[in-house]
Design a protein around this nucleic acid. Structure first.
Length: 903
RNA sequence: GGGCACGUAUGUCAAUGGUAGACGGCUUCCCUUACAAGGAAGAGGUUGGGGGUUCGAGUCCCUCCGCGCCCACCA
């Protein structure tokens, strides 16, 4: 007797399979020996080197692994390429913090030592997520693993920079940017958060130079007035028409500044007059450019006031300076009023420090021409194909249309240093290497630009830099464009758009055909999970508690809509895993063949017969169900409908296979003495289980491998042709493609009648309080077609209804003392209950049923009585309703007879 | 300020304009030798409110209520 535990232990299965798969190279596309195999490729969104696994990752990884395993089993040359992002700011902060504990700053170490230190940190603490990826069962090809700071990827980044610069798409300029005073770097617009802020609106009076009085301006940031170089009004504002061109005296500073007219000013807001600070406000900057205004920098990179702000302000923090400015204006009676005002404020996405807009020399990427590439691809070719298409296609398109230039330099040390050098004369040389720069410059006296590139500048190349670009490698030819990108919606702009753009620019083809956008997993209150809120659920703890496979099923069914985390759901899939385990246990316990050493399946298909109609009903039925399921699951995975696929598999395995097929086969399979019938039934049972495991594998890799290897079958025969000769593993077995010749609707209809009969009898047993141990008799009356179906299945019906004697007849007289039921299709069943039956109760039971039927009949008849419906609805719909009415009438008549017999 | 979603059983979610389902929970019975993480049988819904289009609406349109998300240069 085979010894298998009664409960599935996921940890046991998770322990050894992954290392075996990885060690034998199953994840690498090279395992595929079919030279004509179609390619399938997903590049993983590279997790940050500082990151550790959260639910969002687990969700995306599950979907990517399902798709990759599915395609691999179908014989595709499948590649899921893993990697990691150097995550500029995060990583630098992490190491800076570590240094702080030692009482050091990065400047104490110097750039070179600091960068060394970051690499050391990466080796020691970075990339925790990589082992977590293994735990999840992700079938990524580790031999192709890439880190964004690897030498080959860095080379790609320099290539990108040089090419764009040579085409004039990258430029260096002194412009207003988002500055984080805490991180001491510039940020792109996408790295800035807007947060609502309860602030104040201050009304300041600026006296006229050549006349009495003053003009009042409203501002939320009075300290910036020290850098004002104009006051602006709307040109159409009659109140101020006469003031345009006048000069006002800037209080405190006593600078003379003009009143200008600009369309930007909203007359309705505040006083209709705006102070203009070109050096510290993006709008004012634009206005300043339009009117040739002077830029006075009064705030520095530490958000402190500069010398230019005046001696008494220099060195003061911006908020301290605000107080002092207000104090002085108040004293001069130039502070007209202060009101409460809510407005949004810009903060650094990472450290939440309030952003200081200031003018700074930075590198920018011009986006108009590049954006047009992506827009044209979207409008003309519908690429990428977003899933779901609504709303993402529109969101992406709209964003592209309003795209502004991208600030790509960062004042960090960790990252790709900008490949630009300066000669002693201040000339700029952009080149791939220092040597190339020296050759271009004709001198070796060059200083490299201190800044590094935005992390997303390197991620933008991910789908092809990882495949070898700028070299024309085999991988690039085979796997680009990649098949699908799986991501959460928060990086559609930051990352997806930029990959599309660079892909089109450098390769001429879209980076991926499809973009599948997953939903978000929320906590049980519907809140986003976040570190700061501490409401996150750790996937690793869920793995420990319920197993990886159960967690994967839970995640797979999340799909594209936001879902609240529900641990009960994982528990129910844990139970499902256990169910599969026990079904397999049953098959294995009863898996021995009469010929010692024979395998259950291996010498051909155990269902192979000359005439399929000679197969028992339950065999024809399960083959039909299996193939329909395979068909559905293939389509659903291709359509990214993982939710439906999980439902399909769950119900096939539990309802069809366990509840019915195993039960219907049981008497033959468990027969005590060996016989050819027993062998064949056992082989068939194992064959269905084997195929079901293959269908389940992409979703539940560990459990299916664990069980599949235990099956008494000729494993090597099930490998996909592309993997012939490999050591057996279910992950290289052929994924089921539906065989339409095995789909048998009449078998399904007949089986439905049998199931209906058994259910009705069980219902009678339950309602009549018949003890499970009590055997009953059944009298069945049915027309010829069903009569033969029932008589072919009497043993099974008897077993499943716990009946001892069954008589089937077309016309037989039903005993009065019996509980009866009418089945769909007009058959009737009676359970004689001489001496046990309570006539009144039975009448009640039947009347209740009649009531239900009548209610439905009324509804249908009303609908059919509607001339408009009959006229306008499709004919088949009308026919369908008529057929149902007929069936109900038949059953009702039978119920009437039964009721009459009881009275 | 602009845009986009969502609201279905007690919970979490499904449902090409055509009989509203699944899982969990709940009730009753059963430790029937694959599985009590199980089996059998049940109960449970005016699909957030109101209006409209349609033969027919959870689904399409309008409106209100509720809860979210994204974008944005009114100081």
């Amino acid at each position: 007797m085979i010894d298998i535990p009664k409960t599935y232990d996921p940890k046991e299965a998770e322990r050894h399979h992954y290392a075996r798969w990885e060690g034998r190279g199953y994840f690498a596309p090279e395992i595929n020996k079919d030279p004509n195999a179609p390619a399938f490729c997903i590049v993983i969104p590279p997790p940050n080197v500082t990151g550790s696994l959260h639910m969002g990752h687990a969700l995306q990884h599950t979907m990517m692994d399902i798709m990759t395993r599915h395609k691999r089993m179908l014989g595709y040359r499948a590649l899921w390429l893993p990697g990691m992002d150097h995550a500029g700011i995060s990583t630098q902060l992490m190491v800076t913090r570590q240094l702080k504990k030692e009482g050091l700053t990065r400047h104490d170490l110097g750039r070179e030592k600091f960068v060394e230190r970051v690499w050391k940190w990466k080796e020691e603490y970075g990339g925790q997520i990589l082992n977590q990826l293994r735990r999840e069962g992700c079938s990524v090809d580790w031999s192709r693993f890439k880190f964004t700071m690897d030498e080959d990827l860095s080379r790609a980044v320099r290539e990108e920079f040089v090419r764009l610069y040579d085409e004039g798409l990258i430029y260096r300029g002194n412009r207003i940017v988002n500055w984080c005073p805490n991180d001491q770097t510039v940020l792109s617009d996408l790295e800035v958060l807007r947060e609502p802020n309860q602030g104040k609106l201050y009304y300041l009076r600026y006296p006229f130079k050549n006349r009495d009085g003053a003009i009042t301006v409203a501002t939320t940031r009075p300290e910036t007035m020290l850098g004002d170089t104009a006051v602006a009004v709307n040109p159409n504002d009659e109140r101020y028409a006469s003031l345009i061109g006048q000069t006002v005296i800037l209080p405190i500073v006593n600078r003379e500044i003009p009143v200008i007219a600009d369309e930007f000013v909203e007359s309705e807001f505040g006083t209709g007059a705006v102070k203009v600070t070109p050096a510290h406000d993006p709008n004012d900057y634009e206005m300043g450019m339009r009117h040739n205004l002077e830029q006075v920098n009064v705030i520095d990179r530490f958000a402190r006031m500069t010398e230019e702000a005046g001696a008494e302000f220099a060195g003061l923090d911006r908020y301290k300076a605000r107080e002092l400015v207000l104090e002085k204006l108040e004293a001069a009676e130039l502070l007209e009023k202060v009101s409460d005002y809510e407005f949004s404020i810009s903060k650094c996405e990472r450290c939440k420090t309030v952003i200081e807009p200031l003018i700074s020399m930075q590198w920018f990427c011009r986006m108009d021409e590049l954006r047009d590439l992506a827009l044209a691809k979207l409008r003309e070719d519908r690429k990428p194909q977003f899933v779901p298409q609504v709303p993402y296609e529109k969101v992406y398109g709209d964003w592209l249309e309003n795209l502004r230039d991208w600030t790509i330099s960062r004042q960090l040390w960790w990252g790709h240093q900008i490949p630009a050098w300066y000669t002693t004369k201040g000339e700029v040389i952009v080149a791939r290497t220092r040597a190339e720069a020296e050759a271009k410059a004709g001198t070796s006296e060059l200083t490299q630009d201190e800044d590094v590139l935005d992390t997303w500048f390197s991620s933008a190349l991910w789908p092809f830099s990882t495949l070898g670009w700028p070299d024309e490698t085999e991988d690039l030819k085979t796997f680009y464009p990649t098949s699908v990108l799986v991501t959460a919606r928060d990086i559609i702009f930051l990352w997806v758009s930029r990959m599309m753009i660079t892909g089109l620019k450098f390769i001429g083809q879209e980076a991926f055909h499809d973009v599948y956008v997953t939903g978000t997993i929320l906590d049980k209150h519907g809140q986003r999970m976040s570190k700061t809120k501490g409401n996150g659920v750790d996937p690793l703890e869920v793995f420990d508690k319920y197993g990886v496979d159960a967690t994967r099923l839970t995640l797979a069914q999340v799909g594209s809509t936001d879902t609240r985390w529900n641990e009960k759901q994982v528990e129910s899939y844990r139970n499902f895993a256990n169910k599969i385990w026990n079904a397999a246990r049953f098959c294995l316990i009863n898996g021995e063949m009469s010929v010692p050493g024979a395998v259950a399946t291996g010498s051909g298909d155990p269902f192979e017969v000359n005439d399929r109609q000679t197969l028992p009903l339950h065999d024809r039925w399960i083959l039909s169900r299996l193939n329909k399921t395979a068909d559905a699951v293939n389509q659903q995975i291709d359509a990214y409908d993982f939710h439906a696929a999980v439902q399909e598999l769950y119900h096939f395995f539990w309802d069809d296979f366990c509840d019915w097929y195993i039960e219907l086969s049981k008497s033959t399979v468990t027969a005590e003495s060996a016989s050819p019938e027993r062998d064949i039934a056992r082989a068939r049972l194992i064959s269905i289980l084997e195929q079901a495991l293959r269908l389940l594998h992409p979703f539940m890799p560990y459990l299916t491998e664990e069980l599949w290897l235990k099956l008494p079958i000729a494993h090597e025969q099930y490998l996909d042709a592309a993997y012939a000769g490999a050591e057996p593993t279910i992950m290289l077995a052929s994924f089921l493609r539906a065989d339409s010749s095995l789909i048998d609707d009449s078998a399904e209809a007949e089986m439905k009648a049998v199931i209906d009969l058994i259910s009705r009898v069980r219902n009678i047993r339950s309602e009549m309080n018949i003890k499970p141990s009590d055997r009953i008799d059944l009298i069945i009356a049915a027309k010829a077609n069903l009569k033969s179906v029932f008589s072919d299945s009497t043993d099974q019906i008897a077993r499943l209804t716990r009946a001892k004697d069954i008589s089937i007849d077309g016309t037989s007289e039903m005993p009065k003392a019996a509980a009866r039921a009418v089945l769909a299709g007009g058959a009737e069943v009676a359970v004689p209950l001489e001496g046990l039956i309570d006539f009144a109760q039975e009448r009640l039971r039947l009347s209740r049923e009649k009531e239900k039927l009548e209610k439905e009949a009324t509804k249908l008849e009303t609908q059919l009585g509607n001339a408009d419906f009959v006229q306008r609805a499709p004919a088949e719909k009308v026919e369908e309703l008529r057929a149902r009415v007929t069936d109900i009438a038949q059953r009702n008549a039978a119920l009437d007879q039964m009721l009459e017999a009881l009275s």
